Computed example of a mutant assay.
Amino acid sequence: MFISRDQIKGTTLSLLMLGIIFMVWEVATLPVSVKSPYGIPEGNAEYQMLMGRVPGAVGATKGFPTPIQFFYSASDQLHAPFRDNGPSDRGIGWQLAASLFRVLIGYGLAILVAIPLGLIIGLHPVIHRAVDPFIQILKPISPLAWMPIALYTIKNAEECGIFVIFICSLWPVLMNTAFGVASVKRDWINVARTLEMSWSRRITLLLIPAAAPTIITGMRIGLGIAWLAIVAAEMLVGSSGIGYFVWNQWNNLSIANVILAVLLIGVTGMLLDVAFGRLQRSVTYAE
């Protein structure tokens, strides 16, 4: 496969930026001497621990891990990502899989609801004008703002997480589906009427294929929002999942594991977006 010079230059620049990030990280975590502003001796172990530093070290080291410490901790976690020693000691692979499973259910339900409703709204301008004020009011509400209502009514933490995914990914898919259907050329619809095509054939052979690029765009945006929301929801009510893992490791003051989880969240979100990007290009047509 041919690699262009711009691709080589872009990759080289990315690696250079990554190297600079690691250099800044290393310098920021170098040992420093500590002087107490309250006249407490530097060798006081309780003061050192209170400040998040290791007592007795050469200089007092900061609590934030160095790159080497992070890589050692990450390799330990990734060595057995699917270990299962009980609810409080599961590998990061299980936690990531639990989050993806919740996203799959909530996001799938949102698609099942949003696409048919979007078709109806897009085909009927009167219905669009009627429901648009409700959509505009509900769309900007933070998914986490629904959590108290969901907990009170559903009374199940697992189902509440799925509900948050559903409600936050519903609106992008719904609005993009309605917009895509409404943008289909009227000439095409008139030709379908002239040929006396049934409504089912119009939807499957005309409307959905013509609006597919816009629908996929909404699905892509909805999935990105869903992946953002599930992490925050699991921090609040989860007993498993990558969000729960982040919060649990923070409570254990394991910053290296928190950084690892944050990177895995980003990489997973990137892979999901790349997959939808490929799907979007496959259904995009040139006029």
Rank of each mutant, 00 (worst) to 15 (best):
V58G: 07
Q48F: 00
Y152G: 14
A28L: 15
M49R: 15
S88F: 11
V54S: 12
N85E: 15
V126D: 11
P116I: 03
G43M: 07
F134Q: 00
G39S: 09
Y152A: 13
V34W: 09
I121S: 03
F22H: 07
P148Q: 08
Q136A: 04
I135Q: 02
A130G: 12
P41L: 04
I137P: 01
I115S: 08
H79D: 13
A150R: 06
A74F: 01
P125D: 11
A130P: 05
R102P: 02
F71Q: 05
P37N: 06
L13A: 11
A97G: 04
A97M: 12
K139R: 15
V54P: 07
G52C: 11
R102G: 00
M49I: 14
P140Q: 02
R102E: 05
L13C: 09
W25P: 01
P31L: 10
I149Q: 10
A97C: 07
L151R: 14
N156E: 13
G106L: 12
Q48P: 06
I135V: 11
A97F: 06
P67Q: 04
S88A: 07
I137F: 06
D84Q: 13
V113K: 00
E42T: 14
A28T: 07
L112C: 12
A114L: 08
G91C: 03
I115K: 04
V27P: 15
G39W: 08
S14F: 13
A45G: 08
M17R: 01
M51T: 06
V126Y: 04
D84H: 01
I40H: 02
A74I: 02
V34F: 14
L16S: 14
Y107P: 06
Q48Y: 03
V27A: 05
P87D: 11
I105Y: 05
I40K: 06
V131E: 04
G118P: 09
Y152R: 14
V27M: 07
L123G: 11
Y38C: 09
S14K: 07
P65M: 07
F64Y: 12
I40C: 13
Q77V: 03
L117T: 03
L50Q: 14
R129P: 00
K155R: 14
P55A: 09
I20Q: 08
V27T: 06
N85T: 14
R53P: 00
R83D: 08
M51E: 11
D84M: 14
L30D: 09
V24C: 07
G91I: 00
S33L: 14
K139W: 06
V58H: 15
I68D: 02
L109S: 04
V58I: 01
M23I: 13
R129H: 10
A130S: 10
L109F: 15
